[in-house]
Write a protein that binds this DNA or RNA. Structure first.
Lengths: 328, 328
DNA sequence: CACCCCCGATGAAACGATTAAGTCGTCGCT
DNA sequence: AGCGACGACTTAATCGTTTCATCGGGGGTG
């Protein structure tokens, strides 16, 4: 058995040094050689030796888009607990408005020699942003799991709520209450879960407004929808739903009397809102645990196919939806 | 310049391998040799080469009691952003019910060679638990900052909201509304911020109930208070306040018509609750930044006196308080 | 057009830590 | 005493990383 790195080097027809550079994402390697090294790496199924794998570190990056929306702390809690149980420690990378760009976070995590990374929250950056820095992850064979996130073409396993089912539940609920003009308050155009939700209702007559994920921006979007005569709104998150409720009230309308609102997530405290929010629950605990399972499996070597695990959401009916009022 | 590890080995009169083992905490080294290696390490001021620690410093532990109460994610967000700006990365240690004990967390953080630790949330464990594992921190001269937390006798600097002012604001507010029988829903007996709040109202006639920090336990506590004729309640967190509101409703009472409730924190979404919560706001952003300031100052060497920084809270009046109804 | 300089890409070799295998001595049991 | 087992330690092999020299081409310059 020849030396491990050397073997790869021979296969690729380069020196060990060059392979090392590729592995660490250093520059000073031409695009052509980098590619050939990567395929050689792939063919031989190279794995980093224990000592460099951060086996000692047992750190895992946890990348969240924000912490204002309670669903993300909830996920963080599950993931943290699950990781701790298996002897890993989460490195928290929460993006903030105007904060550090995602690429820097990834770099930071790589610097700290994390054994893996959990991305959560379908940050829109994941969809449209240049994928350069994700390649740094694939190049290093970094175990990655994405929760409700985009970028499906990188070969990472995904954990997602079934957006199609979720949105159909919400839509069906509103229809069965007699709502005919239904609107959606979604995330940005390149937010993958929002895209999927829209796709699921393809063909139905639906008004759509996009927002970033702030309550205020949701208020604006919802106001526009109401202006167009919408009586039922499906929102891409609970926070957006709360913003939509606020919009209705600003216009002198009652929720759920005049306008019905359905949220998404069923994050904490939604039973305490005014009115209690009807929402589609994500099985966040299960999802968090599965994410950790998948990640640890990758880390410990047992291969994982880059599949997507779809979890079934569940409609929770509370007080923000009611039969449509006939408009005369 | 001789090889680095080899130099230490010569100084200590052992082989490189042995030094390596000491460095990595492996066993198979006698106590005597370990000690001599350590002194040699100390004398020569050995530092691990870059490639092995990957800038392993620059980690900061962030210890939170839970993530369900939105105030902690809010703090985490501020601290994370502030740390990132200065090139540090937070290691998240969130305690969960029945999860890993605090001592293990501290051990874990030390294992990862963090440069400092931020404790938040006045976990009651901090007050009564044996302080043995905190000694591990002082022993290592570990920079520490505590936010709203206990254990004042260990020489760590503190960042706190002025609990006395907070509770006086709440109390004054309720009194000025005509409430005479006032109750408090506080944390466990050894929760330091709760103690302080109680101390501030020493002498006043106040009913007190203790809870852990769950909404359900608050509901029970509040029910007892209401039973005793209380019409105004001061709660140690917003979540407890929501539980108290729920208690009142279960008893067929209106909030704020029959019972007024004041929260504490002003965490996210409290404008959306039913009714919107009157609460005492903690300047969480300022506090988080100050915490990081203090911590980084310690880390970078400029000494910091183990003082306590007290931040002024601010009463935010919303809809959960109203004039007392005369009881006939 | 010839020359030179600069710079990116690359490999050879030095480097530095880790680990496997082997050595030595001591302790305990027969 | 003899034997075996085990712990402590070294030797030597191992493996990835880094430094430094080299190569080669593009483009500006005389």
């Amino acid at each position: 058995m020849t030396k491990r790195l050397a073997e790869v080097a021979k296969k690729a027809g380069v020196s060990e040094a060059t392979v090392s550079r590729v592995l660490n994402g250093r520059n000073g390697v031409s695009e052509a050689t980098r590619a050939s090294v990567l395929t050689a790496l792939d063919v031989l199924g190279y794995e980093r030796p224990t000592k460099l794998r951060g086996e000692r570190g047992r750190l895992v990056g946890l990348v969240l888009p924000e912490l204002q929306n309670p669903i993300f702390p909830a996920l963080a809690e599950v993931v943290t607990a699950s990781l701790a149980q298996r002897g890993f420690t989460p490195l928290l990378a929460a993006r903030t408005i105007g904060g550090v760009p995602e690429r820097d976070y990834i770099e930071m995590l790589l610097d700290h020699q994390v054994s893996g990374v959990v991305f959560a929250g379908g940050s829109y950056a994941l969809a449209d942003a240049e994928h350069g820095h994700y390649r740094a992850l694939t190049d290093r064979r970094m175990p990655v799991v994405m929760v409700n996130a985009g970028v499906s073409d990188l070969g990472f396993p995904h954990i997602s709520t079934d957006d199609a089912v979720a949105v159909e539940q919400a839509y069906g609920h509103l229809r069965s209450l007699g709502h005919e003009r239904i609107g959606m308050v979604m995330g940005p155009e390149d937010h993958v879960p929002s895209r999927r939700k829209l796709a699921a209702l393809e063909g139905k007559e639906i008004q759509v407004e996009r927002t970033n994920f702030s309550m205020e921006s949701a208020r604006l979007a919802a106001a526009k929808l109401i202006d167009r005569g919408v009586t039922g709104m499906i929102c891409a998150s609970d926070v957006l739903a709360l913003g939509s409720i606020r919009a209705a009230r600003r216009l002198g309308l009652d929720v759920p009397g005049d306008v019905s609102v359905v949220g998404f997530d069923d994050s904490a405290l939604m039973t305490c809102t005014d009115p209690p929010l009807t929402t589609v629950r994500q099985p966040i605990e299960l999802m968090g645990q599965s994410a950790v399972d998948l990640l640890v499996n990758q880390i410990e070597g047992s291969g994982v196919e880059p599949d997507e695990l779809l979890f079934e959401p569940e409609l929770v009916v509370r007080g923000s939806t009611a039969p449509a009022r006939k408009r005369y």
